[in-house]
Design a protein around this nucleic acid. Sequence first.
DNA 1: GCAATTCGGGTTAGCGCTTACTCTTGATTT
DNA 2: AAATCAAGAGTAAGCGCTAACCCGAATTGC
Lengths: 339, 339
Amino acid sequence: MAVTIYDIAREANVSIATVSKVINNSGRISSPTRDRVHKVIDELDYRPNLLASAMTSKRTYTAGILIPDIGNPFYPDVIRGVEDFARQNNYSVLLCNTDDNLEKQLEYVELLKQKSVDGIIVAAVAASPERLIETLGDSLPTVVLARRIKDPNQQITFPSVVVDNFRGGYLATKHLIENGHSKISLLGESLHIESSQERMRGCIQALEEHFLALHSVEFCTRNLGFEGGYNATINLLKKTSPPTAIFADTDLLAFGGMKAAKELGYRVPDDISFIGFDNTALCTIVDPPLSSIAQPMYELGQRTMEILIGKISGLSVPELTVLDISLVERQSVKRITDV
Amino acid sequence: MAVTIYDIAREANVSIATVSKVINNSGRISSPTRDRVHKVIDELDYRPNLLASAMTSKRTYTAGILIPDIGNPFYPDVIRGVEDFARQNNYSVLLCNTDDNLEKQLEYVELLKQKSVDGIIVAAVAASPERLIETLGDSLPTVVLARRIKDPNQQITFPSVVVDNFRGGYLATKHLIENGHSKISLLGESLHIESSQERMRGCIQALEEHFLALHSVEFCTRNLGFEGGYNATINLLKKTSPPTAIFADTDLLAFGGMKAAKELGYRVPDDISFIGFDNTALCTIVDPPLSSIAQPMYELGQRTMEILIGKISGLSVPELTVLDISLVERQSVKRITDV
DNA sequence: GCAATTCGGGTTAGCGCTTACTCTTGATTT
DNA sequence: AAATCAAGAGTAAGCGCTAACCCGAATTGC
C-alpha cells in the first residue's frame, strides 16, 4: 500500500496529529520537529491522500464546470482560463457538457454535489433556470459565467461574470459608421438569447447617435452557425436595397455571410463589409481576414474561477463583474468615401 | 447537515449495512426490506456521499485526462467523446492541460494520484516519456490516446488508441494522384512527431505505387500552425518547379498554405490543389472548402474511455486499437486532365 | 428428524485524514 | 514562591461509508 500519515509519524517519532500539523502548517510545531517530519516525508515520498483529507476538512479542492458543449469554439479558451487559475490555487476542475439540456444539468449538479465539489461554475445556462437554482441550493458556492441568472423569487442570487455585449455591439457598429457606412444591416443569432439582444441594442444605440437607422435585420432560423449565417445573408442581400455593411452577432455567422455574399457576386470587402463578434482564431484564416469584436475569453474563465474560489473561501465577492471588449481590425471592412 | 446513511437506517429500522447493501445492490436483502429502505431514501432525498464511499471501496469513479491544450481544435471532440462515455458509466473526468510540458505533466499525475482517480488518459504525450512512465507507475490504470508510448525497458506498456495515420497519408495522396496530379508536394508539421512521420510514409507509399516520387517537401520551423503553413508554402511555391498539389499534414497548415498560394497569385484549386488532415469544422468555412482526411475524433475519445474503464474493472483490454480514417471531398482539389 | 445450507440481516473494524481537546513543561508574573 | 500562561506535542473522536464476518431462523437433503 501507499505510505500514510502513520508511517511518517512512526518514522519521525511523533504523533499523526503532529504530522498533520506540519503538512497543513497549522498549530504550533517547533522547527526541529518540523524539519524532522519534513525529512521523513521526503525520504518516504509521502503524498497525503486528498480523499481522506477531504472527508474531515470538508474541502475537496475540486470544482465543477457546466458548459453547453466544448465543441463550441467559444469555450476552449474560457475553460483554459478556468483551469489555469484553478491549478494555480491547487484546484482541479471536473468538466461537464450539458448540451443546454436541463435534465443533464440537474443530473450533473447532483453528481457534483455527491462528489462534494467545493463549488460550481455554470456557463451560459438556459433562459429559465428555476429548477437549476433549486437543485443548486444556497449551500453550494456557484458562479455564473457569460449569463446572469435572475431568480424570480429573489431568493438566491449568484455572482456572475459577463462581457459587455452592449458595448460590443456599439463598437462594431461605430466602426462601420466611421468607415463611411450608412446602410448597415444586422445579422443576428436569435432574439431569445440575452447576449444577442444586448448586441443589437448596442448597435442601434450607435446608429442613433449618428442619426441613422438599422438598414435591415435578419435572424437565424434553424441553424445558428455557419449555415444560418449563410441563409440569413442571402435574404439580406436579395432585398431591393442591400446593405453596404453587415454586423454579425457571431464570427461563425459572418463566415457564412461572407460565403453567401461571394456566391452572389459581391466582393468582400469592396462591395460589402463584414464585422463579426468573438474574434475566434478562425478570423485570421478566412479570406479576407475578418474584423471582429474580441471578448476576453481566457480572462472570463480566470475571473470566474477567481470569484468562485473567493466565495468558497468565504470572502465577499462582487455580484457582477463586467469584462471589457475590444475591436480587432482586419481586412473585412472597407472605407467608403463617396456619399 | 446532509442526510447520511445513518438517518436512512434509523428511519427504516435497519442497520447501515443493510442500507449500504440496497444502495449497491449487493448481499441478500428481502424485497420488503429493500422497498422500505428505498422508500425512506426517496422521502429523505438521500444521496450517498461518494467521497466516503470511495474511501472504503477504493473507487472514485473519476478519471483524469492529460491533454496538451484544449485550445487545439483537435481536442474538443475527443474530450466530448471521453466525457460522454464516462458519464454513461457514472464516471467524471478531471481536465488537465499540460502544454506538452513535462513538469506540468508530472505535477498533474501526482495530483491525480493524490485525488485517487481510478485511471488516467494521456493524450499526445511528448516523445521521451521515461519520467512520465516512471511517475505513472504500474498501479494506476492508464490509456494512451493518439500516441504510442514505447517504454525503452519494456517494463510497462500502456494500451493505446490511435488513428491510422499511415493510411491517412496514403488516402490523401492517392486522391491527388487519381485526380491526375503528379507534382505532389508535402507540407509537413515536423519530423519529430510520430503522426507526421506516418502520414509522410503513407504519402510516399501511394506515390511509389504509381511510380511517382515526392515533388518536394517542406516542414514547419517555428510555428506549427497557420503561420507555419503559410511560410512553408511560400518556400514550396517559390522553387523553380512548383507542385500542382499539396498534401498538408494538418488543416491548419493547409489554410496557411492556401493563403500563401493566393497571395502569390495562384488560384485555388485551379492552379494548385490542397488537401488537409483532421477534417476540422473550419474546412467548410474557408474558400474554397478544404478536402481533408477525417479522423474519428469523437470515437477516439469514446474508445479510449471505454478501454480505460475496462482496465479499471480488471478486464483484459487490447494493447493497440487503430481507428479508421476517411477522405472527405470538398472543393480544394481540381482534376487535371492534360498530361 | 437432524445436520447442513441458505437467507436475511446485524456488528464492527477500518479507509487516512483533521481537529477539538488535553497534558506536560518551562517561562513569566506578581 | 505560588500562580499563570503559552509553547509544543499527544489523544481520540469522528467524517460517511464498505465489507468481512457473524448469527439466528428458515429451509433443505437424505
